[in-house]
Nucleic acid binder design. Structure first.
Lengths: 324, 324
DNA sequence: CGCCACGGGGTGAACGTTAACGCAAGCCCC
DNA sequence: GGGGCTTGCGTTAACGTTCACCCCGTGGCG
């Protein structure tokens, strides 16, 4: 910086002023400084800057340990959006145990982050972070529920309603739900919504089969379905794929003998055999929303009004009217 | 730090020594310092540390803009491994254009990174980074080819050989290849290996159909297959799913009428209908390997001998002998 | 003609850490 | 018994920014 100042014939402070877009700099001076910066290939040292300002311009992200495409997509989009407004991101992951969460948080805090994006929907992780109180703005990602603080989510209840409505409209009454792990807020919200909607229609809720999001667990869930179920609302696409596989293997034809609705609309959903009817979640939009929220809290830009995005129903070929 | 020093009755330098595991500290003094740190909840300021050492203990990662589960898994694993040795990671992504790559690199360099992990297999990105010469250790991820510098990869030629060998052993001679975009080194390696192996057997290489990794492109590739092909070696699982979908829709039964081999072994491969025969790549292991490589270059630990991991063939139910 | 306000820019200190060096006490050895 | 060496710790000066404050010239006004 001193070299730049010397070359431009000004003081280091003026260089700093130019860099930080301060007013009260004569255009010609600014040009000289900019030219000197260009010529020397000068790059501002962010460590020194962070030292004196106490801010790192960095958003810390806590993700799940299992590389799920959903949360990962959100985080990926968050990074892009953050970069667009000059913020950096730093990501780490944690197991859902208080000690591990604490360690992950300490890791990020130790590195210096100005805000935290929590993409771990596990209840224990959320609780642990709340407990630790990081002392910086926090936004919860994809929890889908009622936000304690700021949160960027997709409306899970509405998503479940879209899926269920479709099955009900087709005439199904014996609808079963294959849920994700109930330790995940989103899984619980979908399961609750399932029960709620069945009750609203005066229908009997069938036992909820709990999977672990993987296609494998969906495969095994097929064995746990009640005999007279005619449709299954799956907590995510992966489990739907596993279920579809097992049903097909058993000679149960989808959608003739059984209707199936997934959740997420992953890239493969369009090309399963048959293509999966599902509910689309725009994970990337959640990342963008989170950055808007955080940027506002960091004093840049204004907070968006909407914090809950709407899911979208995608009709394909795994649903049909029940056989009478 | 001064507060800690005061409480422990030592100088700040001694605190620093304890923090950095220097020798020549009396155990009892170290205990006093540690106790003071604990009591005050002191956390070292990494910005100040980076300022004076010129090192950030951070690995920068450049990933693709499209959130593919493969590279993302690798990056995710890289983060975990890095954290285990006390390194941080910072990720960004870039389009495959020199200007964008430059910007991404500047972004990371500006933030201060000690090493770079390049998880963008696009040739243009690799070239651009090489061109810019970041001046820090670089490791290429998943390029699968001959490493210019350090690289952590899975042997693509061997993977292709496993897939092809299987089809050849079944008696196929009219084998076609649906490749990924040839701008990706790995796609090109697989395609080259396909041609090479066909030639070795004295078989005619069929026209290579180029997709874009997505299931959609695999779906469309079905229209471009030659009439008498009896087997397809797909560049990845996603395209195989799309292909499988289209073939099934056309009434072509897999594997009776057509054999199909994928690549990657994604979580869904086990549960397609029928389950996909494929070649497994251990993406997480690549991330771990990359950290080992980088840590060695950063002066911690010793570099692993192996830089190329072996893929593994996974036999499922999309392949059979050709109908005679 | 003198004073003041203000635009434009410079000066020194401070942020929290590590590196380089200094220094005292104790020990060994001839 | 004194000189050198080791052990254990303290002192001072950086690192590259930004912040708070000061200073100088110029123009307007009474």
């Amino acid at each position: 910086m001193h070299d730049v100042a010397a070359l431009a014939g000004v003081s280091h402070q003026t260089v700093s002023r130019v860099l930080n877009d301060f007013e009260g700099i004569r255009p010609e001076t600014r040009e000289r400084v900019l030219a000197a910066i260009e010529e020397l290939g000068y790059r501002r040292n962010l460590a020194a800057r962070a030292l004196v300002t106490g801010q790192t311009q960095t958003i810390g992200m806590i993700g799940p340990v299992v590389p799920d495409i959903g949360p990962l997509s959100t985080l990926h989009a968050l990074e892009r959006s953050a970069r667009a407004v000059g913020l950096h991101t730093m990501m780490t992951s944690t197991e859902p145990e208080p000690a591990a969460v604490r360690q992950a948080l300490e890791f990020l805090l130790g590195r210096g982050i100005d805000a935290l994006a929590l993409a771990a929907q596990h209840r224990e992780i959320i609780a642990a972070v709340e407990d630790l109180d990081p002392g910086i703005p926090v936004v919860h990602l994809l929890t889908g529920g009622t936000p304690a603080g700021a949160s960027a989510s997709i409306d899970q209840v509405e998503g479940a309603r879209l899926a269920m409505q479709h099955l009900l409209d087709l005439g199904h009454t014996r609808i079963q739900h294959v849920a994700g792990p109930q330790s995940y807020t989103e899984a619980r919200l979908r399961a609750d919504a399932y029960r709620q909607i069945m009750a609203e229609r005066g229908l009997e809720s069938l036992p909820i089969v709990e999977g672990d999001w993987t296609a494998d667990s969906g495969f095994h869930a097929a064995d746990a379905l009640v005999a007279d179920a005619t449709a299954v609302f799956c907590g995510n696409d992966q489990m739907a794929f596993g279920l579809l596989h097992h049903l097909t293997e058993k000679g149960i034809v989808v959608p003739r003998d059984m209707s199936l609705v997934g959740f997420d609309d992953t890239g493969e959903a369009r090309h399963s055999v048959p293509p999966l009817t599902t509910v689309r979640q725009d994970f990337a939009a959640v990342g963008q929303l989170a950055v808007d929220l955080l940027a506002a809290q960091l004093g840049r830009g204004v907070a968006p009004a909407v914090q809950i995005l709407e899911p979208e129903f995608v009709a394909r070929y795994t649903t049909a009217a029940p056989r009478s």
